[in-house]
Design a protein around this nucleic acid. Sequence first.
DNA 1: CGGCTATGTCTCATTGAGTGAGATGAACTC
DNA 2: GAGTTCATCTCACTCAATGAGACATAGCCG
Lengths: 265, 265
Amino acid sequence: MPVNENITSSGPTTLVHAMQILQVTARGGHRGASVDDYLNELSFSRPTLYRFLKGLKQQGFLRSSPIRGRYLLGYELLVLGAQAGNGAGLRDLARPRLLALAQRWGDSFYLFARDGVNAVCLEVQNGAYPVGSFVRATGGRLPLGVGQASIALLAYLGADERGEILSHNAEQLMDEYAIAIDDIEAEIAHQLKHGYARGVEGSLLPEYSGLAIPILDHSGHPLGAMSCSMLKSRMTKSHKLDVLQGMQEEVAAMVNQAHGLLYLD
Amino acid sequence: MPVNENITSSGPTTLVHAMQILQVTARGGHRGASVDDYLNELSFSRPTLYRFLKGLKQQGFLRSSPIRGRYLLGYELLVLGAQAGNGAGLRDLARPRLLALAQRWGDSFYLFARDGVNAVCLEVQNGAYPVGSFVRATGGRLPLGVGQASIALLAYLGADERGEILSHNAEQLMDEYAIAIDDIEAEIAHQLKHGYARGVEGSLLPEYSGLAIPILDHSGHPLGAMSCSMLKSRMTKSHKLDVLQGMQEEVAAMVNQAHGLLYLD
DNA sequence: CGGCTATGTCTCATTGAGTGAGATGAACTC
DNA sequence: GAGTTCATCTCACTCAATGAGACATAGCCG
């Protein structure tokens, strides 16, 4: 693996370098990265590398692995990440509700938010029935267009903004997920008409099915989306209505709670 | 609130500044931080601040709030944080097991790891019976000595290392939690003798009680700890034995799984 | 125990990258 | 449309990050 061609270009180079180091470390998963990984994939001298490693360790962004010469992501990232996932306080509000839904219905429930041209998973609660999903866990990202939650998020953006996002993602959606823009548009229309989304079916994960509903603020702007996924065989008409109603109730309660909180400042 | 006296001192100043910005932002919770917050709490010029904000945004560490002039933590931190919490792959292994325990017994279950002189919460699963806890969520940190999990982690460190940690934390433990070192030592002895910890009772949270067991690697080094908390009234002798056995079984299974994974590299 | 390899640190000269002051432009508020 | 605050630009300066290569230290294996 040669040099990485990050688009994350400009800005103080120190930040870019730091980020590159973190990315290389993250790519190593729970094994982290070794000095050689850094030296191969990045392009600065050994002393500089060590200066960064030291600095990042002091900031809590890295820690050294039990194995000498390897580095892992530090726990400060965990702390900040937990905060980051709580945009608008949504996550705290959603967590117990996702759990309740998962326990009650046995399916898996998700909280998503928009992150540029992607949807990012803020929280998952798995139920008793195992499912496959595009996102493995908190922090997973999908290009907007993939998955039920994407539709729910896209549907309530301005038409122009939505167009930009979709044309940006079009190629990737087709190549990696076998999803066509037209099908997305159709599903968005369904969302707007019926108030929930079912997701566009690509070539991947054909055995799973799901639902999603948006979480809208008072002005109709999407704060996020709640979604669920389940084996297709579980998606009977009555189960679908049950789950949908459950989700709608929880989201309505969340939004009320959120409005309450906003006035406390 | 004037200048902050961070101990996070040396290293490339750019990193320190970046971290300060992130910390200020984090302190703002889900409301984030405003330009003035940064300018007041930190000590660099406005153009420099904006350069940082721009850079951090491009790296995904920050995003701008819907409210103009305010900034929130970016979702890249969420992604990295999710990775960071998965040290040794423990979190992925623990997540479904914590959920199973929470559903079966109704109490709240936690995964902790050591982070220097602190214990950091990697994962929580709440059960049907609500509890209070020192940590609110993933990413929460406690000085080692507070809580059951701390004891389980401390007990299997070398005596010298343990001593350093405790003397470092002593003052804070007494002042903020009303916990004496001697009591911690006694509880560590209990852990070593009986294989589980109950935690030292300080003046805080007197109505709650809990249990913890260590997660040890093959050489007896602590990788983490699993703990639970519940209302004191729920802690009957039989419930305690049930939960303890459940936790021990899950941890044993986790450790087996982990060893299996290690040989796959 | 004693060489071997790879990790981590140091020194120093060099230069370029980040810096502040202040002016200017853009966006939102009333 | 006046006023305010957010955000960017320009430019000269200088300090702080950099690379080369030597040096120190820790674990490894016979």
